[in-house]
Design a protein around this nucleic acid. Sequence first.
DNA 1: CTGAAAGCGCTAACAA
DNA 2: TTGTTAGCGCTTTCAG
Lengths: 337, 337
Amino acid sequence: VARRAGVSQTTVSFVLNRTPNARISEDVRRRVWEAAHSLDYEPNAVAQSLRRRSTHIIGLVIPDASNPHFWQIARGVERRAADLGYSVWLTSTDLNFERERRALASLRQQRVDGLILQVQFPVTLLREIEAIRAHGQPIVRIGRPSPDLDCLILDYGAGCIELLDHLVALGHRRIGFVFGTTAPNSLRPEVELGQDRLEAYRQAVERHGLDRDADLVQPCGPEPEHARQATGCLLALRPRPTAIIAINDYLAITVMRTVIEAGLHVPGDLSIGGFDDIPLAQYLTPALTTVRANAETVGEKAVDLLLARLKDPGLSPQHLLMPTSLVVRESTEAPPH
Amino acid sequence: VARRAGVSQTTVSFVLNRTPNARISEDVRRRVWEAAHSLDYEPNAVAQSLRRRSTHIIGLVIPDASNPHFWQIARGVERRAADLGYSVWLTSTDLNFERERRALASLRQQRVDGLILQVQFPVTLLREIEAIRAHGQPIVRIGRPSPDLDCLILDYGAGCIELLDHLVALGHRRIGFVFGTTAPNSLRPEVELGQDRLEAYRQAVERHGLDRDADLVQPCGPEPEHARQATGCLLALRPRPTAIIAINDYLAITVMRTVIEAGLHVPGDLSIGGFDDIPLAQYLTPALTTVRANAETVGEKAVDLLLARLKDPGLSPQHLLMPTSLVVRESTEAPPH
DNA sequence: CTGAAAGCGCTAACAA
DNA sequence: TTGTTAGCGCTTTCAG
């Protein structure tokens, strides 16, 4: 391109990148653009990244690509990043410890400028995370707070209490919990996902003096099939729970189906509640009562946090608590009699 | 690392990359690994890509991140790619022409090794696509056939005919179509998505002599809200259709909700059919009758096609037709009386 | 079996 | 206002 325009590489670089304090004559500028166009020139981003020591890519790791909630977060991240001139590299770990580790390693090697993580095995990943930070790649964590990381915490705990209070107010005393968070392919039990809701559940049970059989909490995997089985167990309990909450809307859909297949009416015989308020929740029949999480906003905020730190690495770690809110729809009602 | 191990960069490179026909003494090999570990060395993938002239990244463009069907494809792509040592760069265009163009441009600059595209504006993008190919980046297209591209075609046409035949066999003569494919933010009408099903629909109407009011086909945007409006229009028709098919399961869910909200029973008063067989389809109530698309397999096959071409660029363009199959569940039944 | 050296395509001091 | 030059971190011929 330089040869074609009759100038040096430097000049071309200045012109094409619109380098601010490089004064180039209009004439040269025009010639360069013309040459670039006529040659269909495309800068090589790989070389640029190498030289600039910055890729302008944000790495995003989500735990489960099947769950619409995480896609919403991803959308938020992507939109915001695009607005600010960044690309997003999305990886899902499907709640698999090994994939999580690999994802982080790969993101580190690819030298993404920063990471937004919603990882599930933080203890075991501490070394990975340290390594990434040692590389100077900042991290924003979505989920639970970590002492020296920027964190975005979805206040599911408060939402869970709201949801349970709502059920109790309707008269429910025996509430099942489909706790679909364990990693099916992993022997490691340290998954942190959902602990907030579990704590809130236990606390509410305590406070309201609700039934507390251990069986009312059914841990299971993150796929619909797992939720179906867990729901089966719950329905087999005697007395049967009059309400079931699921760790997220995605699984709540399966819970609802399983309950209906068992010949029960929702909410007449059994109420159901979920978390996230995925877009589909309102289009189910009955429409799902759920705890809204504003996923897209979460994604956007995560980008903001990351870029703020990128700009000023000295900032003290930020912890943002994102509010949730109960959305009462049709799937909850007073228990029978 | 080289200095630390007391050898040259070359040797380190050989050892770390396990370069096949470089014979290195066991002793040196060990020393190099040790040095690398103790220094927490991570190869810089950017530099590697620059030098190797290959990034080992596959670009994937999907049209709508809200629709679970496309995530399934993405999962298939990602899994297969990971197995073969590639990473995936995922972008969704949300059926927006400008975003589609930008996505392609960016993918080209980032020098991905190849692309898997499910683009919706092929005519307008012809230049972009040509430019990419001129760069030597092979393309696999998912969707409709293009003469000189590797293509993966989902046989929705055949599936649509199966679905309509099924409805006709049940006794339906008046079938609405929620055709949710138009790009809301784009003035360009050349979207190709769904044309296969539209053609099949028209053909079936012809063949079976079904009702053919133009209003029975309701074009609309790709979001649930659009489908809700389109369904409203369909329900307002007199006589009312006795069955409605939606361009995909994602929208079929909304159609179902809208119909139920209108006080009708599904399938008693009105049957509903969709396409894709997204994982949720079977968990709805009533469970959705749909045309299964085997999305994950599509993703895997796409990777296979791409890598085959990467290995042997001289191959003649491959066109693969992926079969679909009707899955009859609970949402279709004979029309009333 | 190992090392020296060239260079991938670009940017940014520094000179002119 | 423009050009010269030195790398970014790695791979890979080619010689030793």
